[in-house]
Amino acid sequence: MKLKKIAITVAGALFAASMASYSASALAIDNSDIKIGVSIWSSTDVLGSDSKRMLDAAAEALGVEVQYVDQGHVSERVTASVEQLVAAGCQGIIVCNSSDTEMVSAVKTCNDNEVYLAQFYRIISEKNSPEIYAMAKASPYFVGAVHEDEPANGEALVNILINKGCRNIGLIGWEQGDATWLGRWEGYRAGVEKWNAAHPDDQVKLSEPQYAGTSSEGGSKAAEALMAADPTLDALIPAGGGGDPLLGAVAAVERAGKVKDISIVSTDFLPDLGERLTNGSMAGQSGGHYCDPLYAFMLVYNAVKSGANYEDQFIDLTFPYLYVSSPEDYGDYDKYFEQSLPYNAEEIVALSNMSVDDLRAAANKLSIEDAAARASK
């Protein structure tokens, strides 16, 4: 294995030298010897398919082979997917969804096989899982995580509903114990508690969560249960889960004839979000950029190229969410994130040569305005 590390280090040095004079198209890069695995809850649902579209573009721009395993956020399949990708010859893997406990097995598998690993849309909680966080940080092959500020996201979304006049909010989670879900739930509660403390005569109620899994059927059943339990419900938050639970919840509200009575906000953009903001079936949404996996891909790609040792490191890269709450908000998002990708091939190559600090700055800069400005050059 030491020979492998030396070869990777030498290749990394040669690559850095060649990139110093890089001026041709991304097609000049030949990384056919690099294979990166993607363990993902679904590569076909709303968020998963956009994530795959972005990763496929990155793999093409960098000349890297990419292999996907859909694991449905089923615990044993998550851990098995990492083993499967290692067995397939991947030198690096990015993974989502992944609970903190599932990361124990994933990190061990990658340590044992000298394969680099990073999370996307997720991070091991240093607060809730300090031992697992420490284990990951001590790993020479665990690179880090790309994620969002989920409590801030949750608070922003619940405030959209509160400011629309909603006072009786039903909550739909996806998997109990999922770190991202717990972060969003923390934010929803914080927003409600702050409002209620400041408005003793105008209280907001937030239900206990109904759990939907990651399917449309689960979202539909959860919404039906919440509406049946409280006929005065005037808002729903399907917290996430890839987009399908939201589709099911929206369909349930439509079947009940309550589109005008129940406002819905969620995370993970729908493909027809513009229409839904116009017809009122959605009141607002966060998410949208689907670039977490791109940046996790870059972290792992650079680790493979350099052969670096990540012991006592934990790269924590946070993305800002995009928020839309009107058809006008959605117009430019559709143009620069749906009709095209937010990064072209040359920009992807440029990202691949950035330091971690520069990648962090690029991530923090990403917005609809940023994508529009780069596209106009």
Results as ranks from 00 to 15, higher is better:
A235S: 11
S355L: 04
I262S: 05
G248R: 03
A296H: 06
G213P: 01
W181C: 12
F269T: 05
M19K: 12
Y68N: 02
L3E: 12
A239Y: 04
E102R: 03
L182W: 00
F337L: 09
K260R: 13
E65V: 00
E126F: 09
A212I: 03
P271G: 08
Y321G: 00
E114S: 14
R255W: 01
A235Y: 02
A7H: 05
K52M: 06
R189S: 10
L171N: 11
A371F: 06
V82S: 08
N153R: 05
V95S: 12
A249G: 00
N97P: 14
R53D: 04
Y321W: 02
D234I: 03
S98M: 14
P209K: 01
G248K: 02
V349E: 08
K221T: 07
I348M: 08
S51D: 13
E114T: 06
D244Y: 11
G92K: 04
G257K: 05
G241I: 03
A239H: 07
Q91N: 05
D316L: 12
A362P: 00
V265I: 09
A152S: 15
S99M: 14
D358L: 10
N111H: 11
E347F: 05
A20N: 13
Q84L: 07
S39N: 03
G248H: 02
W174Y: 15
V356I: 14
A138N: 10
K365W: 02
S376F: 00
F337H: 11
E102M: 07
R255P: 04
A308R: 10
T44Q: 08
L351C: 11
D30N: 15
K305L: 14
S263P: 03
D358C: 04
R167M: 01
G187W: 01
P130H: 08
K127G: 01
T318K: 15
F142A: 10
Y295S: 02
W41A: 11
L161Q: 04
W181D: 14
I368V: 15
G72A: 14
I94L: 05
